[in-house]
């Protein structure tokens, strides 16, 4: 286990703890407009949850959601981008410059 900027311990607000594979190239992305770091090969879910406690607000309850199955079966992890289509966070690789949202896009009713 290494103590690099991206190794354990996690970012203060993050949920996930990196235990291995911390030597990969950093990737920059925007989360709700703020610049964040992930590693090449991270899924969008890993990228967000190493920086934040949840992915989105639940539509049918008061709680937030942070994914559940990680295998594309539960559909709990769909999130918005600033532009373009919604994405399934557990099965989409993060890419440099992605602009991800944990809230619904403003132009969406």
């Amino acid at each position: 286990m290494s103590g690099t900027a991206f190794g354990a311990p996690p970012e203060p607000g993050g949920r996930l703890v990196r235990l291995a594979e911390t030597g990969r190239q950093p990737v920059r992305f925007l989360l709700d407009g703020a610049e964040r770091m992930a590693l090449t090969g991270d899924t969008v879910l890993t990228a967000i949850l190493t920086n934040a406690p949840a992915l989105r607000q639940a539509e049918f309850g008061p709680e937030q959601r942070a994914g559940f199955c990680l295998m594309g079966a539960c559909q709990d992890c769909w999130i918005w981008q600033e532009q373009g289509p919604r994405i399934r966070a557990c099965s989409t690789p993060v890419a440099e410059g992605m602009r991800l949202l944990t809230r619904t896009r403003r132009d969406w009713p």
Partner: peptide
């Protein structure tokens, strides 16, 4: 079980194997 931070066991294993992460501290 709807709270963020609840995952399936399979999810936790995928996270460890395919991403090298634990889903919590």
């Amino acid at each position: 079980w709807q709270a963020p931070g609840v995952y399936s066991l399979g999810a936790m294993q995928i996270a460890l194997k395919a991403q090298g992460v634990a889903m919590g501290r």
